[in-house]
């Protein structure tokens, strides 16, 4: 499932295909391109947390649009990882309100613990650090997003450790977003 080598053409799972079929129902038949962003989210969840050119070509084929139309979009939106990532991508908010409540310190702390700099993956392959802009959770700053979960108020070493331990103890990376188990939703 996680294979993204160029030689094997990636294929969506049956569950993903069913979800994509449901999504197409949301838009007029001649406007299937509308489903591009939701399908890219599915593809990224299904193929190892990033979208390779081959996966993007599959998305183009699934919708019936040109590959370049997918590349233009995937490279515009920051949520799509265009290079391989670690098991968990820690998206650290760095914008003003989080900065006021210690996001710089949080980033430094995560770099120290994981051994990865921002933009890199830790040597054990577990964590990729990524700085992102405002995640709309300024009241509980500083925060980190991992896939669909927000970890909020990470202003103590204990809170940071709790997050990292929870992630370390996840045996499997959830394949599809709606299959996520073992992760509670936002604390709020």
């Amino acid at each position: 499932m996680e294979s993204t080598t160029a030689t094997v053409k990636p294929q969506f799972s049956a569950a993903a295909k069913a979800e994509i079929a449901r999504l197409f129902e949301h838009y007029p038949a001649e406007r299937r391109k509308s489903a591009l962003l939701p399908i890219l989210h599915i593809a990224q969840a299904e193929f190892g947390g990033w979208v390779s050119p081959e996966v993007q070509d599959l998305v183009a084929e699934t919708i019936g649009i040109l590959p370049i139309e997918v590349y233009e979009v995937s490279s515009f939106y920051t949520m799509f990882n265009l290079k391989p990532v670690g098991k968990h991508v820690l998206e650290i908010c760095r914008t003003g309100p989080c900065m006021l409540r210690g996001s710089d310190e949080l980033t430094a702390q995560l770099e120290r613990i994981t051994g990865a700099k921002v933009g890199e993956t830790s040597p054990d392959g577990l964590f990729t650090l990524k700085e992102v802009e405002c995640l709309a959770a300024c009241g509980t700053a500083p925060i980190v997003q991992v896939r669909e979960k927000y970890y909020e108020q990470l202003d103590t070493p204990e809170a940071v450790d709790a997050m990292l331990n929870e992630l370390r103890n996840l045996v499997h990376r959830p394949l599809l977003p709606w299959e996520e188990t073992g992760l509670q939703h936002s604390q709020q």
Partner: peptide, 15 residues
């Protein structure tokens, strides 16, 4: 698409 830094009301309301 609530993303204006400092704004997080809509997320709260929707959740």
């Amino acid at each position: 698409d609530e993303s204006e830094p400092g704004t997080f009301k809509d997320r709260h309301l929707m959740t």
